[in-house]
Structures are given as structure tokens and as C-alpha cells.
Simulated scan of single mutants.
Amino acid sequence: MDKHKFSDAEISGVYRAIAERRDMRHFIDKAVPAETLARLLQAAHQAGSVGLMQPWRFIRISDSDLRHAVYQLVDQERQLTAKALGERQDEFMRLKVEGILECAELLVVALPDKREQHIFGRRTLPAMDIASTACAIQNIWLAARAEGLGMGWVSLFDPEQLANLLKMPEGSQPIAILCLGHVEEFYSRPMLELENWAEPGDLEDFISENYWSA
């Protein structure tokens, strides 16, 4: 037996969290304990990052007026996205795309300024700062699911407008709004699949060997 291997129960828990993670939009009115939020943020901070640059920054939105202002920015982009979708505009507008005003905790995840000084692993792939931060977000997502909490990643916003709203320094960049909280139930399948917006692809269509296969 591999001495580094988790127990069967622990392995099952990891795969269950991955399989049952959902991009949640519906939340109930119940607070998230401070110690739970601290654990989730610590899980995020343990993510792998290129060159150990740890490019993630988390802004907890606790002010009610500021939360509403964030919501207004998202709703503005929601309207513009709907128009850009053309014939799917009405279908898109029927979707619930965020839970900003309902979730217990609202977090904005951002990249800091002065990232150009981090060259290790980014000389030819500068977007690895975004990739590293996405790993941190996924850590929160999976830990939240294990804790029985739902999380939704909202990307419908203008980065410059949100940065200005949150008084972020020049060169920084918000990349995610995270809605976190208790839910009545988790979606049985991804919500966009349930709403017939899109169908997930089969794994074999995403794998090739040695060379690219269309």
C-alpha cells in the first residue's frame, strides 16, 4: 500500500466535493460563522502559485451600500451581455446569474499591482497569475462544498469600474466576485445544464495523445 495515499473515506470525500461542486446562485438567509470563513480563506491561501508569487487578494464586502453598488455594476453588465447574445437575449435574461444580495458573504478576488516584478514562470506566460488565482478560488469552492456551503463565481462586471469602486491601486485587477453562503439545496447538475443553456462535453472529446486532435 502506498504510504502517501489517503484512506478510502478521505479519497471518497475529495472526489465527492469535486463531483458535487456547483456554481450556486440561490442562497438562504443564514450567516457563515467567522471561523468557517477563516478556514475557507486559509484553504485558498494554500493554493499552488507559479513562482510562489501568491497573486490573490481577497476583499470582503461587509458594507451594505457597497454590496448594492457591486450589484448595480453586475446588473449593468448583465444587460449588456444580454444584448451581445443577440437571439439568445431573452433566454439569458431569464437566467439567475448571481446571488449578490442574498448570499451571506461577498468576496471580490483580485490580482495586485506590481505583478511585473514576478518573472519566475511568467516570462512567456504572464497570465499564470490569473491561473494561480483561479487555483485559490477552486480551493475555496471545494472546501465550501465540504463545509456544506454554496459558492458562485460571478464574472459579469467591468474590471475597471469595479476596481474604481473598491479603490484599488492602478495596475491591480479584479477577476471574480464570489457569492458564498448556505443554500436550501445544491443543484443536482450544473444550473446551466438544468436550464438547457448548454450541455457539458464528454471527457474523451477533451483528451488527445502526443499531438492535438480536433
Score class of each variant (00 low, 15 high):
residue 12 S to E: 14
residue 80 L to E: 10
residue 163 A to Y: 00
residue 170 E to P: 04
residue 107 L to S: 11
residue 149 L to D: 01
residue 133 T to N: 03
residue 88 R to V: 00
residue 46 Q to V: 01
residue 32 V to E: 07
residue 128 M to T: 04
residue 182 H to V: 01
residue 134 A to L: 04
residue 110 A to P: 06
residue 135 C to M: 12
residue 133 T to A: 10
residue 193 E to I: 05
residue 156 L to V: 09
residue 61 I to V: 15
residue 69 A to G: 03
residue 188 S to W: 01
residue 42 Q to V: 11
residue 165 L to K: 05
residue 199 E to A: 13
residue 58 F to H: 01
residue 26 H to R: 14
residue 82 A to D: 00
residue 44 A to S: 14
residue 180 L to W: 03
residue 202 D to T: 12
residue 67 R to D: 05
residue 4 H to M: 08
residue 100 I to D: 05
residue 34 A to E: 15
residue 187 Y to D: 15
residue 39 R to P: 02
residue 189 R to F: 03
residue 21 R to N: 01
residue 47 A to F: 01
residue 188 S to N: 10
residue 142 L to H: 07
residue 115 R to E: 08
residue 111 L to D: 06
residue 43 A to D: 11
residue 110 A to R: 08
residue 208 S to L: 08
residue 143 A to F: 02
residue 209 E to V: 14
residue 39 R to S: 12
residue 170 E to Y: 00
residue 165 L to C: 08
residue 111 L to C: 07
residue 41 L to V: 08
residue 68 H to G: 14
residue 5 K to D: 13
residue 66 L to Y: 06
residue 14 V to G: 00
residue 192 L to C: 03
residue 98 E to W: 02
residue 172 S to H: 06
residue 41 L to C: 09
residue 160 E to S: 08
residue 203 L to V: 14
residue 7 S to F: 06
residue 166 L to Y: 06
residue 143 A to R: 00
residue 99 G to N: 02
residue 91 E to Q: 14
residue 198 A to T: 13
residue 155 S to R: 15
residue 200 P to G: 04
residue 119 I to G: 04
residue 10 E to R: 09
residue 11 I to E: 14
residue 89 Q to G: 05
residue 19 A to Y: 10
residue 183 V to Y: 04
residue 178 L to S: 04
residue 67 R to P: 03
residue 152 G to D: 08
residue 84 A to Y: 02
residue 116 E to V: 07
residue 79 Q to D: 07
residue 213 S to A: 11
residue 3 K to H: 13
residue 203 L to I: 13
residue 8 D to R: 11
residue 117 Q to N: 13
residue 179 C to D: 12
residue 12 S to L: 12
residue 59 I to F: 13
residue 59 I to Q: 11
residue 57 R to L: 09
residue 181 G to K: 05
residue 17 A to M: 02
residue 172 S to K: 05
residue 97 V to R: 14
residue 134 A to F: 01
residue 69 A to Y: 02
residue 19 A to P: 00
residue 200 P to W: 03
residue 195 E to H: 10
residue 191 M to Y: 12
residue 168 M to R: 03
residue 53 M to A: 13
residue 182 H to W: 09
residue 49 S to Y: 05
residue 107 L to C: 04
residue 140 I to H: 00
residue 92 F to T: 13
residue 106 L to R: 06
residue 62 S to R: 14
residue 156 L to W: 02
residue 202 D to K: 15
residue 185 E to S: 14
residue 53 M to G: 12
residue 184 E to L: 06
residue 153 W to R: 03
residue 105 E to T: 15
residue 133 T to H: 04
residue 213 S to Y: 11
residue 193 E to F: 06
residue 205 D to H: 12
residue 124 T to E: 05
residue 204 E to V: 06
residue 10 E to N: 07
residue 73 L to M: 12
residue 5 K to S: 15
residue 214 A to H: 09
residue 204 E to L: 04
residue 208 S to Y: 12
residue 95 L to H: 03
residue 158 D to I: 10
residue 104 A to F: 08
residue 37 L to Q: 10
residue 62 S to A: 15
residue 96 K to H: 10
residue 150 G to W: 02
residue 82 A to E: 02
residue 99 G to Q: 00
residue 88 R to Q: 10
residue 181 G to T: 09
residue 141 W to F: 04
residue 79 Q to R: 09
residue 126 P to N: 08
residue 195 E to V: 09
residue 152 G to F: 07
residue 198 A to W: 03
residue 112 P to T: 11
residue 72 Q to R: 10
residue 77 E to K: 09
residue 189 R to K: 15
residue 35 E to A: 14
residue 11 I to A: 15
residue 12 S to K: 15
residue 185 E to W: 02
residue 158 D to N: 15
residue 59 I to W: 09
residue 213 S to G: 11
